[in-house]
């Protein structure tokens, strides 16, 4: 930043310098001739030709040598024994090097939207929202002590994006806060990025659920995602218990 500011200061002062200092002007003209004159153009052209010939040679070398070396090295790599080095931290046993997890790719016909691309509106009548947008998805209609809903729209064209419902439920063990997101297209959204990469799985009737559970201060945070009738559901549950919680809310959702 400082460097940029200094450059601007220099440029600001430049007109005064050129008007009052003839020697500097002559020097600038001479430099400009060296840099932009006919000889300079020829020099640049020669350098360009040299650079191009070197680049083409490099590409040819890589195109021939690299595939051959990869072909030979592949077999050697797979035969290497596990690294027997000791570890300072407690390690259960040497593990093979895990494969890097690729970032999840959105469906081929879907669009990824950042939160900044969207605007939100409160929803007082979810049935009407569904009718107006030709949607058919499940949401919590009973059991919640209190609930509120919002619809997100693409700011650019006001097209419908997804639905959110915030609820809390009370039972004899305490209460759960439940956030439900429903996407009814193949589009993907920043808001549900934290659900990517879930690997634990269970079935609730015929619904395949991917989930994760984390604990903090006697509370569990469950994130789960599943698909049903073309809708993608994202469910975040915070509460004291985990036993049967996913089953309970997935069943309640589709009841």
């Amino acid at each position: 930043m400082r460097k940029e500011k200094d450059i601007f200061e220099l440029i600001k002062q430049y007109p005064e310098q050129t008007e009052t200092n003839d020697a500097a002007l002559q020097e600038a003209k001479s430099l400009a001739r060296k840099r932009y004159g006919r000889q300079a153009q020829l020099r640049r052209r020669r350098w360009l030709m040299r650079f191009a010939s070197v680049a083409v040679s490099c590409v040819l070398v890589f195109a021939i040598v690299l595939p051959i070396s990869l072909l030979f090295s592949h077999n050697q790599m797979t035969e290497l024994p596990n690294d027997p080095s000791g570890s300072v931290e407690p390690q259960p046993e040497p593990q093979p090097e895990p494969e890097p997890e690729p970032e999840p790719e959105p469906p081929s016909d879907g669009i990824f939207f950042l939160t900044e691309d969207l605007t939100v509106s409160p929803v007082s009548d979810t049935e009407r929202l569904q009718a107006e947008n030709g949607l058919s998805f499940a949401y919590f209609t009973e059991g919640a002590l209190q609930t509120s809903a919002e619809a997100y729209y693409v700011s650019e064209d006001r097209s419908y994006a997804y639905f959110m419902q915030y609820s809390f439920f009370i039972d004899e063990f305490g209460f759960d806060t439940v956030n439900l997101g429903v996407v009814s297209s193949n589009n993907t959204f920043e808001a549900f990025d934290a659900y990517a990469g879930l690997t634990e799985e269970l079935w609730v009737d015929d619904v395949h659920v991917l989930y994760s559970v984390s604990y903090a201060d006697s509370m569990a945070q469950i994130r789960c995602t599943f698909q049903e009738n073309g809708n993608h559901y994202f469910l975040e549950i915070r509460g004291a218990g985990t036993e049967g919680v996913i089953e309970k809310y997935v069943t309640l959702l589709f009841s």
Binding site: S167, F168, G174, F175, T177, V178, D217, M219, A240
Partner: peptide, 9 residues
């Protein structure tokens, strides 16, 4: 909630 104070959503 259980043993801790939990804020409503």
């Amino acid at each position: 909630n259980g043993s801790v104070y939990m804020y409503y959503p």
